[in-house]
């Protein structure tokens, strides 16, 4: 005669069960990737990624210097130079 453990195990393992749907498997993994902490060092922007912003700043600063250098003498001439 089977013991109670064997009977219950058999009852439970005979239960039908749908396999994990592949769409759910892929969707879940894709979403989980978005929750993972970034690898060490990845949070700091690399020089290559930062370069465009440095270049933009340099261009804007140069434009400001040229503007001031051009405008100040004109104003001083108008007001008595």
């Amino acid at each position: 005669m089977k013991d109670e453990n064997e009977i219950v195990e058999q009852m439970l393992t005979e239960l039908p069960l749908a396999p994990l749907p592949s769409s759910l498997r892929e969707r879940t993994l894709a979403r989980a990737h978005g929750q993972l902490a970034p690898p060490p060092g990845a949070a700091r922007p690399s020089l290559a990624r930062a370069l465009p912003s440095y270049a933009t700043s340099a261009v804007l600063l140069s434009a400001a210097v040229v503007f001031v250098a051009d405008t100040v003498p004109r104003i001083s001439r108008v007001f008595g130079g």
Partner: peptide, 17 residues
């Protein structure tokens, strides 16, 4: 089960490190 499955793995990803 589908919603719980996703929630489980999202939580696991958040806390894994």
């Amino acid at each position: 089960a589908e919603d719980l499955f996703q929630e489980t793995w999202l939580a696991a990803a958040r806390h894994a490190h």
